[in-house]
Simulated assay, not measured.
Amino acid sequence: MPKSSALFAVCFVAGLLGALVSSTALWAAGEYGVSSLLGVQLAPNFKQSWLFPQMMIGGLWGLGYFFTVGIPRHRRHWIRKALWFSLLPSAFTLFYLYPYVQHKGLAGFELGMLTPLLIFLSNLVWGFFTGFFTRLFWGR
Rank of each mutant, 00 (worst) to 15 (best):
M1P: 01
I71E: 13
A29V: 15
R73Y: 09
A25R: 06
L7I: 07
Q54R: 15
W138G: 05
V101M: 09
G105P: 02
G33N: 04
F67N: 11
L7Q: 06
C11N: 11
P89H: 08
V21R: 05
N123H: 13
A107P: 01
G18A: 06
P116N: 00
F95E: 05
P44W: 00
L94D: 02
F95T: 13
F132P: 03
N123M: 07
P2F: 01
A14E: 04
R75F: 03
G33H: 04
T93K: 01
V125P: 05
P2G: 04
G70H: 08
S23R: 04
L94P: 09
L97M: 15
M55F: 10
F120R: 03
A91D: 06
A29M: 15
S90P: 06
V40H: 07
W84S: 12
G70V: 10
W61P: 14
G131L: 02
V69G: 10
P99R: 05
S49R: 14
R73E: 11
G59W: 06
R75V: 03
G127W: 05
W138C: 04
V125E: 01
M1K: 00
G108D: 00
A91C: 11
S23I: 03
S36N: 09
L106R: 02
W50C: 05
Q102H: 11
R135C: 09
W126R: 11
R135G: 10
G18P: 04
A25G: 07
N45S: 14
R76V: 04
R75C: 03
P72N: 00
A9V: 14
Y65M: 08
I71M: 13
A29N: 15
T68C: 13
G139R: 01
W50Y: 11
V13T: 08
T24N: 07
G131D: 02
E31P: 04
W78S: 00
F12A: 11
W126P: 11
R80F: 07
F120V: 09
W50N: 13
Y96T: 12
L124K: 14
L136N: 07
F137S: 12
P99E: 02
S23D: 07
G70T: 08
G18H: 06
P72M: 00
S23F: 10
A9I: 12
S90G: 06
R76Y: 08
K3R: 15
T93A: 04
W50M: 12
S23Q: 06
S22T: 13
A14M: 02
G62I: 07
G139Q: 01
M1T: 01
A14F: 02
C11M: 03
E110C: 00
F137Y: 11
F46T: 01
W84L: 14
W126C: 09
L136V: 04
R75K: 03
L26S: 10
L87S: 14
G33F: 03
L7S: 05
F67R: 12
L88G: 11
P116A: 00
H74V: 10
S36P: 00
L124V: 14
T130A: 11
F109I: 05
S4M: 05
W138I: 07
K3G: 11
Y65G: 08
